[in-house]
Each structure stands twice: as structure tokens, then as C-alpha cells.
């Protein structure tokens, strides 16, 4: 799958999570899913970029670089 489609799909999923779990009408008795005040794109960006790196690695046969700690 082309890289831009992977990114698009992942971003759409992150945007869905950001909305459906954290926004919308609240009915008392909702399941509490603790994502409040967390920007999921912020969390997901690392996963997203990592997954694109992995994709690149699969294509070229070179292992992806390990994630740099403390940057996300």
C-alpha cells in the first residue's frame, strides 16, 4: 500500500478515537475510557511514523531505526 494511504488511514483512525472516546454527548453511566486531555495524535504520531518507517524497512529490507526516546 502506498505510504500516503497508510498515513491517511492511520490519521483517520486517530481522529476517530480522538472524537468518539473523548467528545460527543455524555450520558451518565458511560464507560470511562481514560483518554481525557490526551492528544491522541500526539501519542499516535510516534506509532504512525514508526509504522511508516517499518513499511519502508519491509520494502527495502533494512530494519527500521529504533525510536529515539524523549522526542515524542
Amino acid at each position: 500500500m502506498p505510504e500516503h494511504l497508510v498515513v491517511e488511514r492511520e490519521v483517520t483512525l486517530l481522529d476517530l478515537l480522538d472524537r468518539i472516546l473523548d467528545k460527543g454527548v455524555i450520558i451518565s453511566g458511560d464507560i470511562t475510557i481514560s483518554v481525557a486531555n490526551v492528544d491522541l495524535i500526539y501519542l499516535g504520531l510516534r506509532l504512525l511514523l514508526t509504522s511508516v518507517d517499518n513499511l519502508e524497512a519491509i520494502r527495502t529490507g533494512i530494519p527500521a531505526l529504533p525510536a529515539t526516546p524523549g522526542q515524542a
Binding site: I20, D22, K23, G24, G29
Partner: peptide, 10 residues
């Protein structure tokens, strides 16, 4: 449409 947050049960 007012979407309801995931997980609302009554």
C-alpha cells in the same frame, strides 16, 4: 445529529 460518546448504555 448530536453524536453520543462511545460506550453509553441505558
Amino acid at each position: 445529529v448530536l453524536p453520543v460518546r462511545f460506550g453509553a448504555l441505558l
